Simulated scan of single mutants.
Amino acid sequence: MSAVEVLRLPLSVNLGGFVALLQRLQVPHRVSEESGEQVLWVPGEQLAEDVRGLYQRFPEGDPDFQLVPAPVSERAGGFVQQLRDSPLTTLVLLLTLLVAGVTLLGDNFATIRWLSFQDFQIQGEYIVFTPLAESLAAGQWWRLITPILIHFGVLHLAMNAMWFWELGRRIEARQGGVMLLGLTLLFGLVSNCVQYVSAGPGLFGGLSGVLYGLLGHCWIFQWLAPNAAYRLPKGVVVMMLIWLLVCLSGVTETLGFGAIANGAHVGGLLVGCATGLLGGALARLRR
């Protein structure tokens, strides 16, 4: 396989950070000097296209390794730029916040019943659920997805929004907004259905099933095809898996923190690992 020219830049341009990023990703490359310019070479045209795209996103290297915080004014501007760079992630979070406002964070049952997995009626102190088959027969297919937008309480919303912002931006930067949308819908569908099948009729909601899917996707993808975007901080995967085991043990319910949608968490994680396995394997082959 012959070497392919990726970039040709003036000697005044500092390629050190980007070359360090390529080294961390284990991308074969070399830099030569020709006619007063520095030239970056990689083996193969497909890899060259990938590296060009990577340089457009991270010309100065991996931003996750910038250990010195920027001034407040720069951080503010950087956040605005992050919003612009992650439109799909931002859109999902804005929609989630809108639903949280309309549903009064779980207190407005008249609105929640239109977004819940099953329609229901409040009769005294009891909730009477409409069979799912009846709702689907009436064309209410959105119910298979929309529970991911329902949140019960400020803490529930804040934690899920924070993690979706962290994981969603990574996938949108690495694989694009269309892929993030597809994964979000897939993880939402699977996690909601697994929760329903495993626990039966019930009122549940939140992005946590999707989050475990995104986590599993990044985790396995990064394991197979190391890349800067999916390199999670040390301990994040371990912490999330420990929390999953704690929830499965029933300790949270015993301590009075309420029921946890464990089926959604497990279902999301498993399908996320599957998509990460597929995506990572394809990325590895392309390299």
Rank of each mutant, 00 (worst) to 15 (best):
R8G: 00
R8W: 04
R8Q: 12
R8V: 12
L9V: 15
P10R: 07
P10L: 08
P10E: 07
P10N: 07
L11F: 00
L11H: 02
L11R: 14
L11E: 15
S12M: 05
S12W: 03
S12A: 15
V13N: 01
V13R: 12
V13W: 05
V13L: 15
N14D: 15
N14A: 14
N14T: 01
L15V: 10
L15K: 04
L15G: 09
L15W: 04
G16D: 14
G16V: 02
G17Q: 11
G17F: 11
G17D: 11
F18R: 02
F18A: 07
F18L: 04
V19E: 09
V19R: 09
V19W: 01
V19T: 12
A20E: 14
A20Q: 14
A20H: 10
L21R: 03
L21G: 05
L22W: 00
L22D: 02
L22C: 03
Q23I: 04
Q23G: 12
Q23W: 06
Q23H: 10
Q23L: 09
R24G: 03
R24V: 02
R24W: 04
L25D: 14
L25G: 10
L25K: 14
Q26Y: 02
V27G: 05
V27Y: 07
V27L: 08
V27W: 08
V27S: 08
P28L: 09
P28V: 03
H29I: 06
H29Y: 15
H29W: 10
H29M: 09
H29E: 10
H29N: 10
H29K: 06
R30T: 07
R30Q: 13
R30N: 07
V31A: 06
S32I: 14
S32K: 09
S32D: 15
E33H: 11
E33K: 13
E33Y: 05
E34R: 14
E34H: 12
S35M: 11
S35R: 15
S35G: 11
G36A: 08
E37F: 13
E37I: 03
Q38N: 05
V39I: 08
V39K: 01
V39E: 01
V39L: 03
V39Q: 01
L40A: 01
L40T: 03
L40V: 04
W41C: 00
V42H: 06
V42R: 07
V42M: 02
V42K: 08
V42P: 07
V42W: 05
V42Q: 05
V42T: 09
V42I: 05
V42C: 03
P43W: 03
G44A: 07
G44K: 04
G44F: 06
G44V: 09
E45V: 10
E45R: 12
E45T: 11
L47D: 11
L47T: 11
L47F: 10
A48V: 13
A48W: 06
E49W: 11
E49V: 12
E49K: 13
D50T: 13
D50Y: 05
V51K: 12
V51L: 07
V51H: 12
R52H: 08
R52C: 07
R52W: 08
G53M: 09
G53P: 00
L54Y: 03
L54N: 04
L54S: 05
Q56S: 13
Q56H: 11
R57D: 11
R57V: 08
R57H: 11
R57K: 13
F58G: 00
F58P: 00
